[in-house]
Amino acid sequence: MLQPGQSGDPIQVTITPAWNAAYRAATKDVSTPEEHDGRVVAPPLMLALLGRMAMAWIPVAAGAVHAKQSYRFHRPLLVGEEITVQATILDLFSKRNKDYTQIGVRATFSTGLLLGEGTTTRIAPFRTEGGR
């Protein structure tokens, strides 16, 4: 049973040139500058994908929908950097006969410096038997 404050194992990822290129090609992301201080920049929304990977331990009810997400970035993610991403249950609540799960994502560089953080809210289409 999920509880607020519960965190999954952190995932560690090195942003490789191949992964950056594949992400840009798959998403057609042209909004991010290619370079920053002479280094290749990874698209900021790559953090949403990494956050989803870090959430893999959280069960998803059949028919659940992704209601909203927001991220705040503290500096660009550069190709070649290693980051750690972890997901934590922030809140569990029911509203209008549906169960909501609010999840926090935090990404840090190998130095411990914060890259970015965000929240995602999921809604189950019906109340689970017995609540959470």
Score class of each variant (00 low, 15 high):
Met1Leu: 05
Met1Ala: 04
Gln3Val: 02
Pro4Met: 01
Gly5Val: 07
Gln6Phe: 09
Ser7Pro: 10
Gly8Ser: 05
Asp9Phe: 01
Pro10Gly: 09
Ile11Leu: 08
Ile11Met: 10
Ile11Ser: 04
Gln12Met: 05
Gln12Phe: 02
Thr14Val: 01
Thr14Arg: 04
Ala18Glu: 11
Trp19Gly: 02
Asn20Ala: 15
Ala21Glu: 10
Tyr23Cys: 03
Arg24Val: 14
Thr27Asp: 13
Lys28Asp: 12
Asp29Ala: 04
Val30Leu: 08
Thr32Leu: 03
Pro33Trp: 06
Pro33Val: 08
Glu34Cys: 01
Glu35Lys: 04
Glu35Ser: 07
Asp37Phe: 03
Gly38Phe: 15
Val40Thr: 13
Val41Lys: 01
Ala42Ser: 13
Pro43Glu: 10
Pro44Thr: 04
Pro44Tyr: 07
Pro44Lys: 05
Leu45Glu: 13
Leu47Gly: 07
Leu50His: 04
Met53Asp: 12
Ala54Val: 06
Ala54Asn: 04
Met55Arg: 10
Met55Phe: 10
Ala56Asp: 08
Ala56Met: 02
Val60Lys: 13
Val60Trp: 11
Val60Arg: 10
Ala62Lys: 12
Gly63Pro: 00
Val65His: 00
His66Arg: 08
Gln69Lys: 09
Ser70Gln: 12
Phe73His: 13
His74Val: 00
His74Asn: 09
Arg75Tyr: 07
Leu77Lys: 02
Leu78Gly: 02
Glu81Leu: 03
Glu82Ser: 10
Ile83Ala: 06
Val85Pro: 02
Gln86Glu: 04
Ala87Trp: 07
Thr88Gln: 14
Ile89Phe: 02
Leu90Thr: 03
Lys95Asn: 12
Asn97Met: 15
Asp99Ser: 04
Tyr100Gln: 07
Gly104Glu: 01
Val105Asn: 09
Val105Ile: 14
Val105Lys: 00
Arg106Tyr: 04
Ala107Leu: 07
Thr108Tyr: 02
Thr111Asn: 11
Leu113Cys: 00
Leu113Arg: 11
Leu114Glu: 10
Leu115Pro: 12
Glu117Trp: 15
Gly118Asp: 10
Gly118Ile: 11
Thr120Tyr: 07
Ile123Asn: 01
Ala124Glu: 09
Ala124Leu: 01
Pro125Gly: 01
Phe126His: 15
Glu129Pro: 06
Glu129Ala: 14
Gly131Leu: 15
